[in-house]
Design a binder for these strands. Structure first.
Length: 723
RNA sequence: GGCGCGAUAGCUCAGCUGGUUAGAGCGUGCGAUUCAUAAUCGCAAGGUCGGGAGUUCAAGUCUCCCUCGCGCUACCA
């Protein structure tokens, strides 16, 4: 194992609160890993912070009539508070708007420039002639080519989730001035990723940056989907990537560099360097040196992220680090897959989520219950699912019935029989082992078994299998329950008090071991347990290592005559009403039916389903559109396209070829013969090698389902106007 | 469309380089027990390992094709 660890968790974007998907994907696994390392006495720094730049934040500020600064201040404070409440124990939670970060990333940029890592390239970008500036993708709105949502952004449609590029938008408009943007050439700095392809391929697949080079990591330890995603990119060939953008909210390209006016560092540089700035700030605050953590190959650098971030952390950021020349590469990037909620994908825009700050309000004192559930459902190898019902069952059956109940019965019996003083034991006294009813137990040997379990648990954490680690943790509680069950102190106390002393002492050692081992998973419960046992609070400085060192010798971790505290309930049952309330809340904010309900006609949509009205236009604006009736004659799927159908439409006076993005809604057979309304004077556009000569109108419901729009009477003549 | 990852008991998931009757937790059924938040402990039932073909003495595990889910990507009005 390396001498020291630097652990990062993906920087959350400061334009919204944290939901359980974020938690299960990156922050909780990172936190467990780090807490474990601290318990083992390792040198570890855990950094994170808010990602506060980019156009999405300025857009949000504009919408809400405030400043980007106000937006990031609000969400930074909120995120920081949420992390604290749910027990994510960063060493520092930084933010990219700090001057230190600006300096750090600008220095990085200078070094890359000096090292000839950039090429300057001109490309055409949308430019707002009224506002006199280039437009970030987010600053351009238009109609989504996929779902016809009229307010899609240049990079993404929030309605249907499609990834877009600004040139895809129909009727693009600048959000700054409302004018129609024009294409204009602009210059940017591109990182020569193509020059890094060779060693990246070698590094990803062999753990060495060059043949015969030093072994930096073992690819067998990396997750399948991580390697697969990387190789998929490598095989397609890496292209130079722009590292700067025409933005107005971000880190300036250093001013001394010619052509830097109006240019900001793109998120590719800005965000990951945030890890480094955060480490620097931590070092300043704690009178430490940040450099060994980033520049010494004794350090294990580990990035915890979600699967959408794989390429960024496994290819682009490593390329940046290597291009700089003085930095180490990550030894692992244990990316998780996605967590679904009640059968559907989490969606911020559709408010289909469990918000962590709300959970912390509504379930005060039950932070660990959420953590436990997140671990059980952690999407380590494939997507997983959170349900409120499962949340309740897990809490009641495992945390209350097994763990909390075990702790409670031990403490109650200890007080009953020994007034809360740990009894001394005769190590030769035999009893039934809690691990196997058939086996005769021996005190020191049983303590040694406890050691083995804790060690196995740690090994699983080290290989990022947190669910398995948690299972082993619970095994210790189950074995404790079994120990009591097999030996029945409540029956045997009178006839065989010596045996009961050993059993109760041993049961207490289980509880004590759990009070330490729980720390990575259930930090609040761990603290409560320490208190109940009247043991010193954990210091995060090798407490588990100390326990292991005693147990491996067969020694107890709580000595005879230690006075324990009063028993209290570690976890409480969650009743049906509480769960039902959460389910109601979820379905109230998003009335979308589940799959089984989808058949039901939904005639009374709630007000929230309606899109806001667009701004008022004049009659002249409407009159510009030439709408005509037409009939679809033929339809076929466009090759290599998922969404397009190629249609020929009888317009009466002529037959037109029109491409329409409806292949995911209708089969070609379904649409042939349908009478439709066509926007006939729309400028033609070539897509997938075919020119589209118009646009077909569809009605869309709140689910994104499409319906034909046409004259209600059959046999209406084609080519007629629609007014 | 291309590429990647996944599809295993009612539910949530493990199954490393192919090799004995395919595992765990939860749920279910039966039994034991009462110190404990009607908790606990034991036993049992439950799977043609998404579908099809192939390689092999032997395939959940390798190859090919197909279906479905998710992600990345693409000139998609």
């Amino acid at each position: 194992m390396k001498k020291r660890h630097l652990v990062t968790a993906a920087l959350p974007y400061a334009n919204g609160p944290l939901h359980i998907g974020h938690l299960a994907g990156a922050y909780l696994p990172a936190d467990i890993y780090v807490r474990y390392l601290r318990l083992m006495g390792r040198d570890v720094v855990f950094v994170c912070g808010s990602d506060e730049h980019g156009a999405a934040i300025t857009v949000k500020a504009r919408k809400e009539g405030t400043t980007p600064r106000a937006i990031v201040d609000k969400y930074h404070a909120m995120l920081k508070d949420t992390f604290e409440k749910i027990g994510i124990a960063f060493d520092i939670y930084h933010r990219t708007s700090e001057p230190l970060h600006h300096e750090t990333s600008q220095d990085f940029f200078r070094t890359l420039l000096k090292n000839n890592q950039f090429e300057e390239k001109e490309s055409d970008q949308y430019f707002d002639e009224v506002a006199g500036q280039f437009l970030a993708d987010r600053y351009i709105v238009g109609t989504c080519p996929v779902c016809a949502h009229p307010e899609a952004y240049g990079d993404q449609c929030e309605k249907c989730g499609s990834t877009l590029s600004p040139t895809d938008l129909i009727n693009p408009k600048s959000m700054l001035s409302g004018s129609v943007p024009v294409m204009r050439p602009t210059k940017h700095w591109y990182l020569r990723l193509d020059q890094h392809e060779q060693w990246l391929r070698e590094w990803i697949n062999t753990g060495r940056t060059a043949e015969g080079g030093k072994q930096l990591h073992n690819p067998a330890d990396w997750k399948n989907h991580v390697l697969g995603q990387c190789n998929s990119w490598l095989e397609q060939g890496l292209q130079p990537r722009a590292m700067t953008r025409d933005l107005d909210w971000g880190v300036d390209v250093p001013h001394e560099i010619p052509g830097s006016e109006g240019k900001k560092l793109y998120v590719w540089l800005d965000a990951p360097i945030g890890y480094i700035s955060a480490t620097k700030q931590w070092a300043l605050d704690n009178d430490k040196d940040w450099k060994p953590y980033w520049q010494n190959d004794d350090t294990a650098l580990i990035h915890f992220i979600g699967k959408d971030n794989i390429v960024f952390h496994c290819l682009i950021f490593p390329a940046i680090l290597k291009a700089h020349g003085e930095f180490i590469l990550p030894v692992n990037v244990p990316a998780n897959q996605f967590l679904n909620l009640e059968g559907r994908k989490l969606s911020t825009s559709k408010n289909w989520a469990v918000w962590v700050h709300e959970y912390c309000e509504e379930f005060k004192g039950q932070e660990d219950v959420l953590r436990y559930n997140m671990i059980k459902k952690m999407p380590e190898q494939s997507d997983s699912e959170f349900t409120w019902k499962g949340f309740q069952e897990t809490n009641n059956n495992e945390l209350v019935n097994n763990l909390a109940n075990f702790v409670n019965r031990v403490l109650v019996l200890m007080h009953k029989y020994y007034d809360g003083l740990v009894p001394s034991v005769n190590p030769d006294q035999s009893f039934k082992s809690g691990w196997d009813a058939e086996k005769t137990g021996q005190y020191n040997e049983e303590l040694h078994l406890l050691h083995q379990k804790l060690e196995a648990m740690g090994a699983e954490i080290e290989r990022f299998d947190f669910r398995e680690a948690l299972r082993i943790f619970m095994e210790i509680s189950s074995a404790g329950n079994a120990l009591l069950q097999f030996n029945e102190p409540w029956k045997t106390e009178k006839e065989n008090p010596e045996m009961v002393k050993v059993v109760m002492n041993l049961a207490l050692q289980h509880v004590a071991a759990l009070s330490v081992a729980a720390r990575p998973f259930l930090p609040f419960a761990a603290a409560k347990l320490r208190d109940m046992l009247n043991l010193a609070p954990l210091r995060d400085e090798g407490d588990l290592l100390d326990v292991l060192n005693e147990l491996v010798e067969g020694n107890p971790i709580v000595l005879p005559n230690h006075a324990i505290g009063q028993a209290a309930h570690l976890f409480s049952r969650i009743p049906d009403e509480v769960i039902q309330k959460q389910i109601d809340k979820l379905t109230a904010t998003d009335p979308a039916p589940t799959t089984t309900e989808q058949e039901q006609p939904n005639t009374t949509p709630s007000p929230s389903k309606y899109e806001p009205l667009k701004e008022t236009i004049q009659f002249d604006d409407f009159a510009k559109m030439d709408l005509r009736t037409g009939t679809i004659l033929t339809a076929e799927k466009v090759e290599k396209s998922k969404k397009l159908l190629k249609l020929s439409v009888d317009m009466g006076f002529e037959t037109r070829t029109i491409l329409s993005g409806i292949a995911e809604h209708f089969t070609p057979e379904e649409v042939v013969g349908k009478q439709v309304v066509v926007l006939a004077n729309l400028a033609p556009r070539v897509m997938m090698g075919t020119e589209s000569q118009g646009m077909i109108l569809f009605a869309e419901d709140s689910e994104g389902k499409l319906g034909f729009v046409g004259p209600s009477a059959n046999g209406w003549p084609n080519g007629m106007g629609v007014k």
